[in-house]
Design a protein around this nucleic acid. Structure first.
Length: 403
RNA sequence: GCAGGGGUGGUCGAGUGGUUAAUGGCACCGGGCUGUAAACCCGGCGGGUUCACACCCUACGUAGGUUCGAAUCCUACCCCCUGCACCA
């Protein structure tokens, strides 16, 4: 690829690159010297559960790898003590060395679904932050001014709104920036929420007489609700460790509009190809459902396999299109006796409470052996040797046998 | 410590003595429709007993109190936020 093509390739899906000219220069230099660029991404040690939102930046790392550069996956075990000042969470639980190591292993297993292990360094910032000591830390702090730190939107906003800003939060951008110095990073990847921190790295590197890193800023992926950013706590996420069937369902549940966003940020489909698809759907030639199925297939293939994707699709069709019983249904054995229907639902865990169970039946959401249960006071016999198929809603199934 | 503001159901947020299990939004759940777990429409959304009308219990930071009756009034306490002060 020419340098221009490389730039184009790296630009895909990003919001901003600061500065693109610097990146060009680094790419040229690397090509000339044969020394790969060092591309950094920081990760929080407390949450090793990666979801699709995180994969946006990981995918960007992969793009750099594909061009032959070295990726440094930095686990912020030191910064984890501070917690990114994203507004809410105050103090974070202090992790033991063992927990951090365990989390690191989980990270590795997950990120190597997208990244090439041979071109990836896993590092911990306690490595250099620990050595710094409090005197070193104070010296480090002398390199930036309060005003510089307070420039950060988040701080300004909170000060303006008279919401608290803890002192240690101000140190977060500083330590993150120092990581770039310690690693001599050429490029740092991050979401838009990280922009300030990434730029701080540039400043600090200059202070330490290093060539400033390039900040490659990626958008934050919206969650399946299409509104808020994907996050575990909001429950609008798709975890990359989730079973294929779950992923398929969740991806099918995104809005038709959001699907294009996902195409852009979660697949390596070239923008032109995605645009063609979009036009085709818009013109009515292609059913949006089909495009969504295709998206789901691609994502599942990345994290599981093409085979798993096919199976998930088949299962989905079976349940939602043909309204059949899934391939595998959980089985439970209960003492052979007669149950009131709501009681049975609670016993099997298909409903959390009697009141909820009754509601489900009244609303027509419960089927017994395929027959809609009309009355919630019905007696249901669980006989030994016979299996009873219970369905709640569209997607919860269970087979119950009497013992 | 002082002053002020605040703590309501998964969440946001109404409600200042009586049809308040608590308006409304969101989330969530069920149904309908659709080639989608999309969109849209309808319904539900603390728990328990009951075939059912119905009844009971628990709930508005915690604990008491006033009252026929309190999320709403009083007292104490706890927690959060803002400002000021004190200490260093």
């Amino acid at each position: 690829m020419t340098i221009d093509e490389q730039l184009e390739f790296l630009r895909k899906g990003t919001v901003e690159i600061v500065r693109e000219e610097d990146l060009r220069a680094k790419l040229v230099k690397s090509a000339k010297t044969g020394v790969p660029l060092r591309v950094k991404l920081g990760a929080d040690p407390t949450a090793p559960d990666i979801h699709l939102g995180h994969t946006v930046v990981i995918r960007k790392l992969r793009h750099f790898q594909q061009l032959g550069h070295v990726v440094i996956f930095l686990i912020g075990d030191f910064t984890g003590l501070i917690g990114d000042p994203s507004g809410k969470s105050a103090t974070r639980p202090q992790l033991t060395r063992e927990e951090i190591d365990a989390n690191a292993e989980t990270y590795k297993r997950q990120i190597f679904k997208l990244l090439d292990p041979d071109k990836t360094e896993i590092r911990f910032n306690s490595e250099w932050m620990g050595k710094l000591g409090s005197d070193g830390f104070v010296r480090l702090a002398s390199h930036v001014t309060v005003k510089q730190i307070l420039e950060r939107d988040d701080f300004q906003k909170r000060l303006a709104e008279e919401r608290p800003v803890a002192l240690h939060e101000l140190l977060y951008p500083l330590t993150q920036a120092y990581d770039s110095v310690a690693l001599k990073a050429d490029v740092e990847i991050g979401g838009t929420d990280q922009k300030f921190n990434l730029l701080m790295g540039r400043n600090l590197q200059r202070e330490y007489e290093q060539e400033p890193q390039v900040a490659v800023i990626n958008p934050l992926l919206e969650g399946t609700d299409g509104v808020q950013k994907m996050s575990k706590s909001l429950g609008n996420y798709v975890g990359i460790d989730e079973p294929p069937q779950e992923m398929f369902g969740k991806l099918m549940s995104i809005s038709d509009e959001l699907m294009w966003r996902y195409y852009e940020l979660l697949t390596d489909q070239p923008p032109e190809a995605v645009e063609r698809l979009r036009l085709s759907v818009k013109a009515g030639g292609l059913n949006p459902r089909s495009a969504k199925v295709d998206l789901a297939r691609r994502v599942i293939t990345d994290f599981h396999s093409a085979e798993a994707a096919r199976a998930a699709e088949e299962e989905f069709d079976r349940i939602f299109k043909r309204k059949e019983v899934p391939d595998e249904v959980e089985e439970r054995t209960l003492p052979a006796q007669t149950f009131k229907l709501p009681r049975l639902l609670v016993e099997t865990g298909l409903a959390p409470s009697m009141a909820e169970a009754r509601r489900l039946v009244e609303q027509g959401g419960v089927r017994l052996d395929g027959e809609r249960a009309a009355r919630h006071d019905a007696d249901v016999e669980v006989a030994s040797g016979r299996a009873l198929l219970i369905q709640v809603g569209k997607r919860r199934f269970m087979r119950v046998r009497g013992a």
